[in-house]
Structures are given as structure tokens and as C-alpha cells.
Design a protein around this nucleic acid. Structure first.
Length: 210
DNA sequence: AAATGTCACAACCGCAGTTCT
DNA sequence: CAGAACTGCGGTTGTGACATT
């Protein structure tokens, strides 16, 4: 019943492909096309399993492959797609003709994840991590304080902490903290790569509310 | 110059969904 | 319809190249 096994794995070669193996596989597929991966290694004279041949062809030998490093624009697009699709690398790769899912997956793990971490974003959820959230709260305090400084023409020395700072607007510090927390939460819920670039606009929006 | 650490990428493994007998 | 094989996908590992100590 059923079909024959894909490969018995006995006597099959593993590890990196040699140039001769590449030539054999490429010549066979270019001359015959792909009908059944299980038969490919036998007919091409390779001691590999069909799965290995398929992977080698898709990730390395395909003539339409686009080699070379991904551009920053491509990286940004990957981040946006990842925020939408998650780890569905093949879906993400389908937006980049000539790129493979393996290539994009590798690039994500080696470069983009680091880039996001540096910016204080969680690579999985694409939201701000706690430390960055605190940093931004701190910078927001400075922004609010400087704004107050300009509106009141007051020459007091600025304070970096909202809790410790005077309150010239007559608003309780807990209320202000609450509004900041709401802002941070709203950023968390909407933040994507684009969203991070909109932080300045969010700050202006908050300032206008006062 | 040697040892060690880090990075980038190719390849393998296991699983799930699909196809075939 | 059941069960086995096939295919494709995502996670993980292995390894060579390069950088740092």
C-alpha cells in the first residue's frame, strides 16, 4: 500500500555539496525539469536524497536567484511583513523575487533581530521592551519640561524626573503619569517599524493636548 | 602567531498538510 | 476511507571565515 519511500538514507552522502554534484543536479534539472524529487538523485547520478536535492536547487542553484546582500529597503520591508505574517518565511520570501525563505530567515536571525534590539524593539512582538519604554518615558519628561520652560519663560533648572519636577500646569503628577502610560500603551499596541518613526509625531500630538 | 569568540550562511531534521494507492 | 509516501516549511545545527584578545 502507499508509495515507495523517499530514500532509505543508507549510503547517501550528506554535508556540503561539491561542484561536481552541483553540475550534475543543475544539468539534470535544466535538461529534464522537475517531475519527482525522489527520482532526481537516481536519474542525475547523485548519492543524495531527493529532499537534499530539492533544498540545494531552491536555495542555491536556481538560475533566477538574486545573490548578494539585502538592501536596507528590503530589510525594512521584511520587518513590516514579519510584523504582519510572523515567522512565515516562505510567505515573506514570496514578496522578494529571487530571494529564498532560507536566506531571509538567516538574515533575520543574524542581522535584523540585532537591529531591532538596538532600537529597543522586541523582535517577536515588535513592541517596545521595558527598558526602552523607561528610556522613552524619561525623554518624554524632558520634552514636557522643556515645553513648560518655553511657555512659562521660567528660568528654573530642568529636572529629568517627572515625579520630582514642579508642576506649573497645576496638574497632578499622577494624572500626568497616567497620560504618559496611556501614550506608551498606545505606542505599544500600534508600533511597527513605521510606528517607531512616528514617535516624534506622537510627542507633538501629546504636547498639543496640553 | 595562536587561541578564542563572533558572524554569516548552508544544510539537516522533524513536523504538518497534501497526494497517492 | 485508511494509511503510507511526498512535499514544503520552520527551527536548529554545523562549519568556515573573519575579528579580537
Amino acid at each position: 500500500m502507499g508509495r515507495q519511500p523517499c530514500c532509505d538514507k543508507v549510503g547517501l552522502k550528506r554535508g556540503p555539496w561539491t561542484i561536481e554534484e552541483d553540475h550534475k543536479l543543475m544539468n539534470f534539472i535544466l535538461n529534464n525539469g522537475i517531475h519527482c524529487w525522489r527520482m532526481v538523485p537516481k536519474l542525475a547520478g547523485l548519492l543524495r536524497c531527493g529532499k537534499s536535492c530539492r533544498l540545494r536547487w531552491i536555495n542555491y542553484l536556481r538560475p533566477d536567484l538574486k545573490r548578494g546582500v539585502l538592501s536596507e529597503a528590503e530589510e525594512d520591508q521584511i520587518i513590516q511583513l514579519h510584523a504582519r505574517l510572523g515567522n512565515r518565511w516562505s510567505k515573506i520570501a514570496s514578496h522578494f523575487p529571487g530571494r529564498t525563505d532560507n536566506e531571509i530567515k538567516n538574515h533575520w536571525h543574524t542581522r535584523i533581530k540585532k537591529r531591532l534590539k538596538i532600537l529597543g524593539l522586541d523582535p517577536v512582538t515588535h513592541t517596545l521592551v521595558e527598558q526602552k519604554r523607561k528610556e522613552l518615558c524619561g525623554s518624554l519628561d524632558v520634552g514636557l519640561w522643556l515645553n513648560q520652560e518655553t511657555t512659562n519663560s521660567n528660568s528654573q533648572s530642568p529636572s529629568l524626573s517627572l515625579k520630582d519636577s514642579p508642576n506649573p500646569m497645576g496638574e497632578s503628577s499622577s494624572m500626568k503619569e497616567d497620560s504618559i502610560q496611556k501614550w506608551v500603551d498606545s505606542v505599544d499596541s500600534m508600533l511597527s517599524w513605521d510606528g517607531f518613526n512616528q514617535l516624534e509625531e506622537e510627542l507633538l500630538f501629546l504636547e498639543n493636548l496640553q
